[in-house]
Computed example of a mutant assay.
Amino acid sequence: MSDERSPWVGDLIHDEAPCRRGIVTDVRGGTVWVLRPEWGQGQWASRHPGRLTLIRPREDVRDQL
């Protein structure tokens, strides 16, 4: 991750493994990040927060709505 903090709920991220952008919707037990696509439907999970790159923190994402 390029940011000092781990991505958290509401953050826009890039997940290296599936090469997808998404928004964090849940963090379960601090070990599983649940993500949904930036646009469209579906979800996926990541157990590797080191592969998640913060693109935009939730505060900035919220300002765009």
Rank of each mutant, 00 (worst) to 15 (best):
S2H: 09
S2A: 11
D3L: 12
D3T: 11
R5W: 03
R5I: 04
S6H: 11
P7I: 08
P7W: 06
W8T: 15
W8C: 13
W8V: 14
V9Q: 11
V9D: 02
G10E: 01
I13H: 03
I13D: 01
I13N: 05
H14I: 02
H14D: 01
H14M: 03
D15A: 07
D15G: 08
D15S: 09
E16I: 02
E16Y: 03
E16G: 01
A17Q: 06
P18W: 03
C19D: 10
C19R: 13
R20Y: 00
R20Q: 04
R21V: 03
R21G: 07
R21M: 09
R21S: 10
G22H: 01
G22I: 00
I23S: 01
I23C: 05
I23K: 09
V24F: 03
V24L: 04
V24W: 01
V24K: 06
T25A: 11
T25S: 13
V27M: 12
V27P: 11
V27W: 08
G29K: 10
G29I: 05
G30N: 04
G30A: 06
T31P: 00
T31W: 05
T31E: 07
W33F: 09
L35M: 09
R36A: 13
R36I: 01
P37Q: 03
E38Q: 11
W39T: 13
W39G: 08
W39E: 12
G40Y: 02
G42Q: 10
G42H: 08
Q43K: 09
W44M: 09
W44F: 10
A45Q: 11
R47E: 12
H48A: 14
P49F: 10
G50A: 12
R51C: 10
L52F: 05
T53H: 14
L54N: 11
L54M: 15
I55C: 13
I55S: 10
I55M: 14
R56F: 08
P57G: 07
P57N: 11
R58I: 04
R58S: 15
E59K: 14
E59V: 12
D60F: 07
R62P: 02
D63M: 14
D63I: 05
D63A: 15
D63R: 15
Q64V: 06
Q64I: 05
Q64S: 13
Q64M: 13
L65K: 10
